[in-house]
């Protein structure tokens, strides 16, 4: 279980999040939503242990994240960042294999399976710097999955995704989030994704944390969110309607009203 108690995040002198107490449960996929500058990526960096919070704590299995050794944390949680610039000509398989640098040797079977899960098997043998932005993102997703592949035991693995669909075409946006959700269910994992698309968050995530005005404005399923809250956060109205393909709500932005 991953929890935060009275979390305060600060950038420079400005508090961007005050007194956030959040709980992330195994088997659940959570979206982090919010307008630009609301602190979504900062929250993710704090949940990953990369940045210390200004005050409050992040607890993993009841232990403050700051007490975890980086190497122990790496066996338990993986992070996929927005940009992973890499100037050296590693192949796609080598990049995914770097996700397993906590093992004595990367395991080829894991690499093949994770590339398959990220729909990146066709990229095998390509040199990473020659890939397009979206292709790189799929390889990075496979690398994050490969990092957690050796994890066994009762504790939930943790997958943190920072705008994982930013450079993907619509088809791959759905493929990636679908894969992330299947993986979350299968491994009873805790998955947290920063997303901009409310529909993707609604269809694929069990619940959404909406950051607005230095606080957590919502942290349940988007099916129940008052649309006025979305208007407050994003400045435009969202029309909610039932999805033709899914039991979850869909949202249509209506800038005029």
């Amino acid at each position: 279980m991953l929890t935060t108690t009275s979390l305060v995040l600060r950038i420079g002198q400005r508090d961007i999040l005050r007194d956030a107490s959040l709980t992330f449960r195994p088997g659940e996929m959570t979206a982090i939503l919010g307008p630009n500058g609301a602190g979504k990526s900062t929250l993710l960096a704090v949940l990953s242990g990369e940045k210390p919070p200004a005050s409050g704590q992040v607890l993993l299995d009841g232990q403050p994240l700051s007490h975890w050794r980086p190497a122990a944390l790496a066996r338990r949680r993986a992070v996929m960042l927005q940009h992973s610039p890499l100037g050296f000509a590693f192949t796609v398989e080598e990049v995914v294999g770097l996700g397993q640098s906590h093992l004595p040797h990367p395991r080829p079977a894991d690499i093949a399976r994770c590339l398959e899960q990220a729909d990146a098997a066709a990229l095998r043998g390509r040199l990473y710097p020659t890939l397009s932005g979206g292709e790189k993102q799929r390889v990075q997703f496979a690398r994050a999955l490969a990092q957690l592949a050796p994890h066994h035991g009762p504790e939930a693995p943790i997958l943190l995704l920072d705008e994982p669909t930013a450079s993907l075409d619509p088809g791959h946006q759905h493929l990636l989030l679908n894969a992330a959700r299947d993986w979350t269910r299968q491994h009873q994992a805790i998955t947290i994704a920063v997303l901009h698309d409310i529909n993707l968050a609604s269809w694929y995530c069990d619940r959404a944390i909406l950051l607005h005005q230095n606080g957590v404005a919502w942290q349940e399923s988007l099916d129940g969110i008052p649309t006025s809250l979305l208007k407050d956060a994003y400045g435009i109205f969202f029309h909610r309607f039932p999805s033709p393909h899914s039991a979850r709500s869909s949202f249509l932005p209506c800038p005029a009203t």
Partner: peptide, 20 residues
Amino acid sequence: ARKLDVFVLGERDAFALGIS
């Protein structure tokens, strides 16, 4: 050597992979 391989991914990725 292996740590440097991870390091060239970027400092944030390196931290996520367990390297200070």
